Simulated assay, not measured.
Amino acid sequence: MRSKLFVPASRPALFAKALNGAADAVSFDLEDAVAPDAKPEARSHLRALFEGLTHATPEAARKTLIVRVNALDTPYFAADLEAVVWPGLHIVNLPMVESAASVQAAADAIEAIERERGIVGRIGILANIESARGLRLAAEIAAAHPRVMGLQIGYGDLFAPLGIASAEPSATQFVRTAVRLAAGEAGIQAYDGAYVHIDDPEGYRRDSQAARQLGFTGRSCIHPSQIGIANEVFMPSEVEVRHAVRVVEAADHHLGRGTGAFTVDGRLVDGPFIVQAERTVALAKRLGMI
């Protein structure tokens, strides 16, 4: 998911446009974007959406569909899951995760509804790292359950209580590095959080490039104008794809002859670089670049 567009669940008029837009994923929000007294109606909107997905357009059918529910320790969590755990939902975005135990509890709750409704296929969990405790325990959270498919940074909740400026590069890069390493240890992906300055597309591009340099797969978009930038930044370049293809082809040749290290395009290549090249080739194929 190079781009994940946030859509308030309380605004059903935006659903169709988001589902037919260019974002790789649509993340319907039941948490911060919806006032407490509007949450019941927002749940009804999402339930109706998922019940009607059998009639979705081809564009919508290709989307990854996410719902950001309210945190496990809120009075809204159980009702959120009851409303959205249906066939067609791919990922539950769990906010304010601070322990492996909370991930396990959320996974158990999702599984119970899946069994009750006969849902085939396992709904994933995207765990938000957005507190100092969550950051410290990010590796435990990432490995807490097989449903956890990624970690996502929540900069606002993480930085604001600590008095850290939201755009402070040293802070954002430190957090990104910690989250990426935690996700990498668990063998899952890391996704960058929101960039709140909608009127600064070049700032969004620079910030996204900084995340990609640290191995992030994609990031949140809080406005449709950010989707194209995210898709471009987190797509491998043609040069990268060509090099990756040559690495994979060379690996097939050399490894079959017992050679574990070799050169491609003047660069030394061995195990980790072969894995990276294989991932780049796989992504390029999914994106239609190969």
Rank of each mutant, 00 (worst) to 15 (best):
D80L: 07
G88Q: 12
T64N: 02
V85A: 04
H45E: 07
L72H: 10
A112H: 05
A100K: 09
D73K: 04
E98N: 06
V67R: 09
A101F: 01
S102F: 01
V67C: 11
E82W: 10
L46A: 07
R62W: 12
V97R: 03
S102H: 03
L72N: 06
W86V: 12
D80F: 05
H45R: 06
W86S: 13
A60M: 03
A61S: 12
L65A: 09
V84W: 00
T74E: 10
G52F: 02
A78P: 08
A48T: 10
R43E: 14
D80M: 04
W86G: 08
A106Y: 09
V92Q: 00
V69G: 14
L72Q: 07
S102T: 07
L94G: 00
E111T: 10
A79S: 15
I110G: 13
I91V: 15
P58A: 00
N70L: 09
A71Q: 09
S99E: 01
I66F: 11
I66Q: 07
Q104I: 11
L65C: 07
A83V: 01
F77G: 03
V97M: 05
L46P: 01
P58C: 01
A60K: 02
V84S: 01
R68C: 15
L46T: 04
T64R: 05
L65M: 11
L65N: 06
A79D: 15
G88H: 11
A61E: 06
V85L: 07
E59F: 00
K63L: 05
N93L: 14
D108N: 14
I110F: 10
M96Y: 11
S44D: 10
A101L: 06
I110C: 12
D80P: 08
L65H: 04
L46H: 05
N93P: 08
L49M: 11
A106S: 13
A109C: 09
T64W: 00
A79I: 10
A71L: 08
A48Y: 02
S44T: 11
R43F: 14
A83S: 01
T57N: 05
A48V: 04
R43A: 13
K63Y: 04
A109L: 10
P95K: 06
A71S: 14
S102A: 13
A101T: 05
V69K: 11
E111A: 06
T74N: 09
L65P: 00
L53S: 06
F77V: 03
G52D: 06
Y76A: 15
P87Y: 02
R43T: 15
V103P: 00
Q104N: 07
P75I: 07
N93R: 15
Y76P: 09
T74C: 10
V67L: 10
A79F: 08
L72R: 09
V97Y: 06
E59W: 01
F50M: 08
L53T: 07
L46D: 03
D108T: 15
Q104F: 03
W86P: 02
P75G: 08
L46I: 08
E59G: 01
W86H: 15
A105G: 08
R43W: 13
T64H: 03
A100N: 08
I110W: 13
I91M: 01
A112P: 03
V85P: 10
